[in-house]
């Protein structure tokens, strides 16, 4: 099934490249025995194309476009699509520069990421499966405040300040990162101050985290960052009826109150 799908995707990539409407197709390929991102261009051998493991290609698309490509196609998953939506919204990528080709994740893939929305809105390959709720989510929900503080304090003690969470994040796009400002986070300290470092990053993720899990995968210590960010995503939904990556609505933390909320605030 998966093999058939892979063959179909390769065929489509070849057709897309031959069609000449895009300068390249951003996807994964197997080279030197490993799998990583690659911009396929006309004439490339598409049999090297792979769809596993997951690399978020939205961030890579910024680089591929920086080379001067006018338009590229991108073979991506639900999280790639959501990241792209945020990047369009935040003026990082021109919407017209990307032709998104969406794959739905398999149940196994969804489980591996504990993904809540393991499919894009536009599915060209694969079939939609249900989202996954991580067990740990209930665990932390059930904790008392003190227990939760102790839990996160212990978890974040493992942080070695690699900034991998920031570097791997497709929607962390600030040139000057507040985490690197000594005003807020002491320099050169491992583990970094708790709760400063991690709370600041979490806050900044609130209206942009698309749950791609790149931060967690880039974390050498397996800190369950997406657990925290997932709770914040839910908050955004509850408070502002907003889900990052799901629509082109403006991020609510950058906008002013509407009439109805004005009443409430006053």
């Amino acid at each position: 099934m998966l093999v058939l799908m892979l063959e179909d995707i390769r065929k489509l990539v070849k057709r897309t490249l031959d069609g000449g409407k895009v300068d390249g197709v951003l996807a994964l390929w197997r080279e030197n025995g490993r799998v990583g991102p690659h911009l396929f261009v006309k004439g490339d051998d598409v049999s090297t194309l792979e769809i596993d493991p997951k690399y978020n290609l939205a961030a890579v698309a910024i680089l591929a476009l920086a080379s001067g490509a006018k338009k590229i196609a991108l073979i991506g998953r639900g999280c790639d699509e959501r990241a792209l939506v945020e990047l369009f919204k935040r003026y990082q990528i021109d919407e017209d520069a990307i032709e998104f080709i969406g794959m739905a994740c398999s149940a196994e893939q969804a489980q591996a990421c504990e993904c809540d929305i393991p499919y894009p809105t536009k599915i060209q390959f694969g079939e939609k499966v249900d989202g996954v709720v991580p067990n740990e989510l209930k665990n932390v929900d059930d904790m008392s405040l003190d227990e939760r503080f102790a839990y996160w304090r212990d978890v974040f003690a493992k942080c070695i300040k690699c900034y991998g969470c920031k570097n791997a994040c497709p929607v962390c796009v600030c040139q000057d990162c507040v985490l690197e400002d000594p005003m807020w986070v002491k320099k050169g300290e491992i583990p970094p101050e708790f709760p400063m470092f991690h709370l600041i990053r979490a806050y900044h993720m609130a209206d942009r985290c698309v749950q791609c899990h790149e931060c967690e995968e880039a974390c050498p210590m397996d800190i369950p960052l997406t657990l925290l960010y997932r709770q914040l995503r839910q908050d955004m939904k509850d408070l502002f009826d907003y889900l990052p990556g799901a629509s082109d609505a403006k991020p609510p933390l950058t906008t002013v109150l509407e009439d109805e909320k004005l009443e409430e605030g006053a």
Binding site: E147, R148, A206
Partner: peptide, 10 residues
């Protein structure tokens, strides 16, 4: 958002 975040982290 901040209020909720603080609560999440204990």
């Amino acid at each position: 958002v901040l209020e909720r975040l603080l609560e999440h982290i204990g």
